[in-house]
Amino acid sequence: MNISLLYSLVGLALFSLGLYGLIAYGHLLRKILAVNVMGSGAFLILVALARGWRQTSPDPVPHAMGLTGLVVAVSATALALALACRVQETTGSTQLTEDGSD
């Protein structure tokens, strides 16, 4: 249980770190990386909880969730990177301006 608690806490720390990065930094690449750090934190928690819930053998369901989550994260990152390139092409900036209403 201890080791899975440790991994869960590391996962939670990664999630919070990613959240901070997403809010604090303006550069789009940093934002995209921050979202990925958040995702890694969530997946780490899933894997850690799989170990901690039933002591005898790891539970496969959270692993399956983690794998599915990874596939989703990869596709989302691909879309985000493509969009970030397009933002730079069309606006010439790698940041989102504060007021996007017009």
Binding site: V35, I45, P62, A76, A80, L83, A84, V87
Partner: peptide
Amino acid sequence: PSAVAAAMRYLLVSLLGSLSYLLGVA
């Protein structure tokens, strides 16, 4: 340019929302 920037912001918010939801599921 405004549509692409809006889509980018929408994507980041959407991912943040889903990850928060996923952590709740875990």
